[in-house]
Design a protein around this nucleic acid. Structure first.
Lengths: 249, 249
DNA sequence: TATTTATTGTCTCAATTTGTTACAATAACA
DNA sequence: TGTTATTGTAACAAATTGAGACAATAAATA
């Protein structure tokens, strides 16, 4: 318990009070759409990766910082989708338990127990490039499929729903598929991304025709070794994904 | 000057610090899309109708309250579209001037000079039903066409752009036209709403066919007295606008 | 009162897009 | 070497959208 070093809790001075963000980080493993969920030490609380905003920091940058620390990626594709501002959302008891079970000693008027307005962002990342690291308060950070999420605390299920809704609306409009795939992929891979996000089956030939007509794909060499059938082409996007692993920066 | 009653400025205690909202209120006069802009007393500052959030109040409700006070309408169609959280956005000097020129005496560390994150909402209202009332700090609140806006302070032009962008994306998806028209209108009126928002001309016959096929309109009696030509039908929406003038509540 | 005018509602046909089926090509496997 | 499953594309049907034509008609005009 000593080693748990009566931790100095984050200070009011450093962060904006009453303001937080929560992020819904989507990844695609080739078959399913998943999101990142973390579990707090010694609790049964599962939560979206979230955090606070420094007093001299853009909100967007606060989110980037949090995701970078947890995934090792910089320049993640990120989009703000909604701000959650109801008074019903804070649950001080939850926060109290998390801090207590992590060995923090704080006063009963500690700033984290106040009301918080949370700005929701979703991120799209390449599942394979991620190097997941739990933060100081969490035991783990892991991928969970959307239809197999643990019980998320507070209004985090609602936040996920809203993120997914926005992602659906933007998928085609903003060509978001690229951010969920490796650099080279087959047409079937791309179709699966669409089907996972939209939760509906698409017609193969129609999908292929539509994608090719958009003039956003480059056709590369063929992919061999995929099975007892004609090999598919590998495609890549003309404008590359903006996501960069941290080592290369 | 005495009558200007060394006003007690709004207190830190009542409102959430660092948190504000700004609203882009769209109205349609039959020809043009306009928005509400207010002008502060004794300054050359024009601004969007905005305000602060009470500590025990949902953010959505704070916006409704502000709009109700200024337009006399309750149940206004309201949609959150983006939260503006850059550190570059606050301009304490502007706020200082506004308060000073309104006769408020405040300390230099007054809470309104802090950094603010602003949540943007747009509203759609029936131009004719509005009963505009400037708030305590403003000389006037008036309609301005989008292509004839005064110089708005801070990042308010950016906020308007983003609101318009979102409105455009939602216009068809959410059948927003109804909120900008009186209860009964001609097909041409509806088309003009669409054209104003989208800033593009639409084909008359195609538009009419599309709207009628949606099964959202009721055809009422004809409108006479409109000119030397065949009279158009008056239409109304099957599901009525949610906007209600305050007197009737 | 008859004629003119501009706009409305609808129809038609062409152009485009989307849905559906068919089929040849082919990499791996038996 | 033939079988198998999947791919890429073509072909055609169905649905949607674009564009023009035209009759109906309320008000203005003669």
């Amino acid at each position: 318990m000593e080693e748990k070093k009566s931790l100095r809790p984050p200070s009011n001075e450093e962060f904006m009070p009453h303001l937080a963000y929560d992020s819904v980080v989507f990844g695609f493993n080739g078959k399913q759409l998943k999101i990142l969920v973390l579990e707090y030490h010694n609790t049964d609380f599962f939560a979206l990766p979230g955090g606070f905003v420094k007093r001299d920091e853009n909100v967007d940058d606060a989110v980037k910082r949090g995701l970078q620390e947890r995934t090792g990626l910089v320049n993640i594709y990120l989009e703000q989708f909604h701000t959650f501002g109801d008074i019903s959302r804070p649950e001080p008891d939850v926060m109290r338990t998390i801090l207590k079970n992590n060995g923090y000693k704080v006063d009963s008027d500690y700033w984290m127990f106040d009301r918080f307005v949370s700005i929701g962002y979703y991120a799209l990342i390449n599942y394979e490039k991620v190097n997941l690291r739990p933060d100081e308060l969490s035991d783990s950070i892991n991928w969970y499929p959307l239809d197999g999420l643990p019980n998320l605390m507070m209004d985090h299920h609602h936040i996920v729903d809203k993120a997914l809704e926005t992602l659906r609306e933007n998928l085609d409009k903003k060509l978001l598929g690229m951010n969920l795939l490796p650099q080279k992929f087959t047409m079937k891979d791309l179709q699966k991304v669409y089907e996972s996000v939209l939760e509906e089956q698409l017609l193969r030939t129609t999908f292929q025709r539509k994608m090719l007509s958009k003039d956003i794909l480059v056709r590369n060499e063929k992919l061999f070794g995929g099975g007892a059938h004609k090999a598919p082409y590998l495609y890549s996007f003309k404008s590359q994904s903006i996501e960069i692993p941290m080592e290369t920066v």
